[in-house]
Nucleic acid binder design. Structure first.
Length: 366
DNA sequence: TAATCGTGGCA
DNA sequence: TTGCCAAGATT
């Protein structure tokens, strides 16, 4: 279907006006809305990917305090950046952001570029973030299509394509190129997203409070809760693990750095292994795995707890043991021994933070 | 294209 | 308890 047909008898200028004036009036006071610094807009947009506003706020504030501008983030150690991202999830966002910021620092003299081609070439900056930075920081009328925008516009224009399919995003981009306010593309894009977050919500939209309800075809037909059309994703896979909290006679704990690619890349964790079979892994087998994988002599003393952690696409079930280790750490083992104090400098995924919490609470009790 | 990549909140 | 959801990008 042509955009021309989708927008037949649609009051474009009226819609723009109602949306933008509503956003001027009702927008939330958020820390990344205090100015239009392209760097801060950029950081906020990366953090907000698949992440709720309430979760992002404290991370954004502390991140900007630690890395207030392009130069400070470009010159920071990656470990510090990951630590600042700890608990926020999707950690490749942090590494891609710093990588891209370093490119801006060097290739663009520290100035975030303002063309779609240049911005979208930066690591971690896809179609949505490109449009968000261009419209919010530079006032360029580019579409910024996220989940909110697809939900809101699917209702307003009765678009019934499956928004879970990648190619569907282009339909919305094409429509927005016709719809977007040339005078205020920033507030137009943000208004669509804010409307999706506050009014045009997934399950029970507040249509009676909606500033653009007279423009909404789904509302007029009473089908707003039937849109958007979104296919279901597959269920999660189960992964059984065994892990060990190991301390030596000097009181140092053994922690391992994960590989630089894949799940939780470059984060730190307690030594752990995929369970050998459904019968489980004995203490002796765990000691043997630690020896063969790390060349570390360990003695497993007792069972600590069972930690269950749910990711978006898999579930970890971790049997945690406590023991001792002896000897020296091999050179290239991605292992370090740390005191309790030193451990605070390392970024751990939430699952292993929970292992540590369990260890501490049980250790204190005995 | 479909799968991968985190986490916390909520119906 | 389970599934779904949130300002997506990468491979």
């Amino acid at each position: 279907m042509k955009q021309h047909e989708r927008l037949m008898e649609f009051n474009i200028t009226g819609f723009q006006h109602d949306l933008v004036t509503w956003f001027e009036r009702e927008q939330r006071d958020l820390p990344w809305r205090k100015d239009k610094d392209p760097y801060k807009v950029w950081v906020s947009e990366i953090m907000l990917q698949q992440t709720k506003v309430d979760t992002v706020i404290p991370y954004f504030n502390s991140f900007i305090e630690k890395f207030p501008n392009i130069q400070s983030l470009a010159e920071a150690k990656e470990d510090k950046v990951l630590k600042a991202w700890e608990g926020l999830g999707y950690y490749s966002r942090a590494r891609n952001l710093q990588s891209a910021v370093r490119e801006v620092h060097q290739a663009y003299d520290g100035v975030v570029p303002n063309t779609p081609k240049e911005i979208s070439s930066l690591k971690g900056v896809g179609p949505y973030t490109t449009g968000a930075i261009l419209s919010i920081a530079y006032g360029v009328p580019e579409p910024a299509v996220d989940g909110n925008v697809m939900r809101v516009l699917s209702r307003i224009l009765l678009i019934e394509e499956d928004i879970a399919k990648p190619k569907t995003r282009k339909i919305f981009e094409d429509v927005i190129r016709e719809l977007i306010s040339q005078e205020n593309p920033s507030y137009f894009n943000q208004g669509l997203m804010e409307l999706g977050a506050l009014v045009c919500t997934p399950t029970s939209p507040s249509c009676l409070l909606c500033p653009v309800r007279e423009h909404c075809r789904a509302f007029h037909k009473g089908v707003q809760t039937d849109l958007p059309v979104k296919s279901k994703k597959k269920s999660t896979k189960q992964v059984a693990l065994v892990a060990a909290v190991l301390q030596n006679e000097d009181g140092k704990f053994l922690i391992h750095r994960r590989p630089s690619q894949g799940l939780l890349a470059n984060l730190w964790e307690f030594p752990n292994f995929v369970k050998l079979d459904e019968l489980g892994t004995s203490k002796q087998q765990l000691q043997s795995l630690i020896k063969s994988e790390y060349e570390i002599n360990a003695n497993i003393n007792e069972y600590l707890c069972d930690i269950k952690h749910i990711f978006s696409h898999l579930v970890w079930d971790v049997n945690v043991y406590v023991g001792e280790w002896t000897g020296e750490i091999p050179e290239d083992a991605d292992l370090v021994s740390v005191s309790e104090e030193e451990m605070l400098q390392y970024a751990f995924p939430v699952s292993h933070q929970n292992i540590w919490k369990e260890y501490k609470s049980k250790n204190k009790a005995t």
